[in-house]
């Protein structure tokens, strides 16, 4: 019943599960933030995640090393990013369409590899939970924040790190400038191409980690299309977060928390039809987006290929 929603167990459950669910969103969306800040829209995130998820799972399963699996996912993501960068930066391809192309490639390729190399759904022993001494003993908080696996902690450390890089380093300055006014950056000797290569490859790596966080840390299985549109939500979260890591964090948490809330709503037999309950995360996210119509604009050069001209 509704009153049960406010019990301690339920609140802890919702928060802990929200934090787990938000992990892949964070990696993917922070990576996408870097890309978009530099003016590149990558819609291939989902495909990069799928290949990353498969690579991590397969390598971890065959070698028994989770770290090697994670590394492979990063390499695979980086290679996908490299290809995307070549297509968008050198060939000036329309970014939305080529991104969809990369998505379909990742989807089909991960499926094909799954069929050929695994053949059936299997499981691995994923990254274990790490209980942070003392902190994890705090009732409630400990379970929510300090009893997660390493990739969950990593996702949350990534947020301030990304903020720092974007705002406090010369690299971040270049990224922001290239996304706003590539001509100006170019005229000052900043290489637009190199900067975008960097951000797209970084985005690919983080998408690979996002996939790995599902296949070898949170779910510990691989199945075809297991990301299930999550990569596209991550892209939407970048808009939601107004191109700021903290905003992305807010969006990812909001979306995930509402999702875990709706799971509890169903479990506690709150009389809401399941079809409506599963719509809640989307509806609430859209409502918040509408309500907080932000003055922040997208990077001016977003999705515009750069060509030195007149």
């Amino acid at each position: 019943m509704i009153s049960d929603l406010f019990s301690v167990t339920v609140l802890i459950g919702i928060l802990a599960s929200g934090i787990r669910l938000s992990t892949p969103y964070l990696y993917a969306a922070i990576g996408e933030t870097f890309g978009q800040k530099s003016g590149v829209l990558n819609l291939g995130v989902e495909g990069q995640m799928l290949l990353g998820a498969f690579a991590a799972f397969y390598v971890a399963m065959t070698t028994g090393s989770l770290w090697l699996g994670l590394l492979t996912a990063m390499v695979v993501g980086a290679l996908m990013g490299l290809a995307m960068a070549y297509v968008t930066v050198n060939l000036h391809a329309q970014q939305g369409i080529s991104g969809i192309g990369f998505y379909l490639f990742g989807l089909g390729m991960s499926d094909l590899l799954f069929q050929k190399l695994l053949g059936t759904v299997e499981t691995v022993q994923g990254f274990p939970k790490i209980y942070i001494p003392v902190l994890s003993d705090i009732p409630g908080f400990g379970e929510i924040f300090f009893s997660q696996n390493i990739l969950v902690y990593g996702a949350y450390l990534l947020v301030p790190l990304a903020w720092f890089v974007l705002n406090k380093t010369t690299l971040g300055l270049k990224i922001r400038a290239v996304g706003e006014n590539p001509d100006a950056a170019d005229s000052l000797g900043v290489s637009v191409a190199r900067t975008r290569y960097f951000t797209i490859i970084l985005g690919g790596i983080l998408s690979g980690v996002a996939g790995a966080s599902m296949s070898i840390a949170l779910l510990n299985v691989f199945q075809q299309n297991m990301t299930s549109g999550l990569g596209f939500i991550a892209v939407a979260l970048v808009y939601f977060g107004a191109w700021r890591p903290i905003g992305v964090l807010g969006g990812a948490l909001l979306f995930s928390l509402i999702n875990s809330l709706q799971l509890w709503i169903q479990v506690l037999s709150v009389p809401i039809p399941s079809d409506l309950a599963v719509m809640m995360p989307y509806v609430v996210t859209i409502l918040v987006l509408v309500a907080t119509v932000s003055k922040v604009r997208a990077p001016s050069a977003l999705s515009k290929p750069f060509e030195r001209g007149d």
Binding site: V10, L21, P24, D275, A277, M279
Partner: peptide, 25 residues
């Protein structure tokens, strides 16, 4: 019997959280 329809045939992550939710309950 607690039933949870997650609204998807493919969302492995949400299905897994649904199971965790059941276990917590």
């Amino acid at each position: 019997v607690n039933v949870n329809y997650i609204g998807s045939f493919s969302d492995v992550a949400l299905a897994s959280e649904a199971a965790t939710t059941h276990i917590s309950a």
